[in-house]
Design a protein around this nucleic acid. Sequence first.
DNA 1: GAAGGTCTTGGAAACTTTTGGAAGATATTG
DNA 2: CAATATCTTCCAAAAGTTTCCAAGACCTTC
Lengths: 258, 258
Amino acid sequence: MHPEERRVKIESYLQAAEFASLEELAQHVGVSVSTVRRDVAELEAGKSVRRTHGGARTLQPKTDEFVFNVRDTHQVAEKEAIGEACAALIQPGQNVIIDSGTTCFHVAKHLGDKVAQVITNSLPVAHLFSGSNRHEVHVSGGVIYPRLGTLVGPDAVDTFLRMHADVAILSGSGIAEDGIYNSHALIVDIQRAMMAGAAKVIFCIDGTKFARRSTFFLCDFAKVDVVVTDAGAPAALVEKLRVKGIHVVCAPAAPAAG
Amino acid sequence: MHPEERRVKIESYLQAAEFASLEELAQHVGVSVSTVRRDVAELEAGKSVRRTHGGARTLQPKTDEFVFNVRDTHQVAEKEAIGEACAALIQPGQNVIIDSGTTCFHVAKHLGDKVAQVITNSLPVAHLFSGSNRHEVHVSGGVIYPRLGTLVGPDAVDTFLRMHADVAILSGSGIAEDGIYNSHALIVDIQRAMMAGAAKVIFCIDGTKFARRSTFFLCDFAKVDVVVTDAGAPAALVEKLRVKGIHVVCAPAAPAAG
DNA sequence: GAAGGTCTTGGAAACTTTTGGAAGATATTG
DNA sequence: CAATATCTTCCAAAAGTTTCCAAGACCTTC
């Protein structure tokens, strides 16, 4: 394996693990600890990871969708705007399925008293409504995906297969002409179950994820009713989606007043 | 585990527990108290936690969006002692069912790395372990009981009917000669399912709840193996339970030295 | 294709940081 | 004020890092 290739591997391993010892990394890429040490030093110069005594950690924690522990500083204004725009699409009294991920969390924040019944596999979303007496929050079963606060696994899938809702609000980590993508295999299964149980399917995907595919193909647009994004979404792809008959909402860049 | 990683863990643990003793933290991350002390001092310099005599507490109640408040001011010292005593009864490697309620939460805090698999309907307990890579946390399905952060309803019951564990750690709101009582009807069903699925049943009930009955009768002592309480429990009732063949543990009033 | 150079790699030796515990100082509790 | 627990300070052992060097891979030049 060549240095460059190895470094990419180390970097991506770190992004998944957040922390790793040099020993661990050495084993993962199959070279000596000395070499890994040099690689990590190199990567540190490129500002993607930081060295720590005994190992290394990600510096720019996954641009990826599903991280709550690390403060959600990525595209916050856009997600806020998306949250508001998406919440506006919900009719009072509907019951909704809410996906995990920061974007959906922002939608949840804007739902207020519009919805009475919420079904989710996201612990942060669950907590958001848990203090209220006006909401019934149904939490799916499942195993906690470490760090994400998301419930995954067969029990989570089962829950959604048994549930029905007026609307499902989902998110993804990539959207292209052919469909929507997600980077977590376990979550893809759950999202499909969510879609199956909902009369209307809304995807909330910020503009930076447009024209990007990630690891797993989630679905084509047959079952997708609405896509909510922000003003940063490339117009070309937005137009293509509209041609397919999808209702695309571009939330204005500046936070709209009520 | 390496310093940086450990500190992040300590920080997130503190955010869930709000306060923790150094002993407790040391156990959680698997290093000596000396090391934890240094880590906490370091974190204090970074202004994320504050040191206190004997432990540390969160300085930032910032709680991102995802921290369940376990603010109980009632019998805290006793519950701490019960938590420690109960955790001592668990064998390393066992998988445990943990009930909701503040007393059980205190037990969870003391379990550390002893258990690898946790099954619970308590959102605070779920969150406590969610940051750890060494724990698999299985959350039951169900509807959130407002204020308690507890999942209830048929889905919760079903989850526990399908699950099996080495030990179930439960709580109640009253205990008398004839059995154990609880004040929430919905929780009684779940507790019965928990007991049915566990090889060993431990009840953690502080002394003030002895010789008291509350609204709902939960169970007699046929399926109860151990009762953990504090030194404040009336000796007469404790004795009667022992005669019935139940192993009663009275945690010492003063927190025992590790 | 061979010779000579450069870069990369894995390991050894010396140095630094971190860790766990011990001894004495300080705080807390009744 | 005494008893106990906790904190600070210090030290030796362990783990990790830096620096250096020789062997091998790769590239350039002839």
